[in-house]
């Protein structure tokens, strides 16, 4: 089994604040993983470090067999590691279709522009209805769809989604959940950050629980804990931290 993504002993943060401490995780070529844990404990920073937006102070990241630790975000994106960041505001003054077209920016993405575009519109019919609309006039849910759509337009080898259903109504949450499940089923490996562990279990093969910038627990879908146990993980302080 080849590894698609390997993060090895990552330490990273902002200025004097260290967020990630010697964090390691991996993802093989045809699996998806989920990340969960309390807010503010480093999940978003981890994704940003992987996609080159935050420089790690130590450790290394390998993607598709290549060391990308010090690569630029744009080069990492160009290599097919797509990242749909949390609460993405995107390009407010551009239209939906224009943004999607632009998102197939790199050479490898350009080739697949048409098919990916069709895929995005069939996943999110709402976006197809709003092709001309400026991004800043979209609702929160639609922006989230557009953000995932952009990541898909990059023709991803690996897709990282940071809380795709954050702050959405139950109905929209379900709609997006179905779309994300659809992407997972199509065979694109995913790294998904979510609070909803049941949702993650239905979507991914393994879960990492992240607390204080460290992996405190790794869970395989086959021996997944039940609901009560998960609640305990969150609130009971059961972890060995």
């Amino acid at each position: 089994m080849t590894m698609l993504l390997e993060a090895d002993n990552i330490t990273a943060g902002y200025g004097a604040v260290t967020v990630l401490r010697n964090l390691s995780l991996h993802l093989s070529d045809n699996e998806s993983i989920g990340l969960f844990g309390p807010n503010g404990h480093g999940k978003t920073t981890l994704l940003m470090t992987i996609s080159g937006l935050v420089r790690p102070s130590s450790g290394s990241i390998r993607y598709d067999g290549v060391d990308i630790t010090l690569n630029r975000a744009s080069d990492i994106g160009a290599a097919g590691l797509a990242h749909s960041p949390q609460g993405n505001t995107l390009f407010g003054e551009m239209g939906v279709a224009e943004i999607l077209e632009l998102s197939a920016f790199t050479r490898r993405a350009k080739v697949q522009r048409k098919t990916q575009m069709e895929r995005v519109y069939s996943l999110f019919p709402r976006l197809a209805e709003r092709q001309k609309q400026l991004a800043r006039t979209l609702s929160g849910g639609e922006r989230q769809m557009l953000s995932i759509g952009c990541a898909l337009m990059c023709a991803p080898r690996l897709l990282m989604l940071d809380e795709p259903t954050l702050g959405l109504s139950p109905k929209l949450k379900e709609e997006l959940g179905i779309a994300v499940a659809d992407i997972a089923k199509s065979g694109t490996p995913l790294v998904v950050v979510e609070q909803d562990v049941q949702f993650l279990l239905s979507l991914t093969d393994r879960l990492y629980m992240i607390e204080h910038g460290e992996v405190v627990r790794e869970i395989d879908r086959t021996d997944a804990p039940d609901h009560a146990e998960i609640m305990k993980l969150y609130f009971g302080g059961d972890s060995d931290d």
Binding site: S51, L90, G92, I99
Partner: peptide
């Protein structure tokens, strides 16, 4: 378009390459 995108959102622009 990439110029306009970089002007509106540096981070998002970098992420799409």
């Amino acid at each position: 378009r990439s110029l306009r995108a970089a002007g509106q959102n540096q981070t998002a622009a970098a992420l799409i390459g």
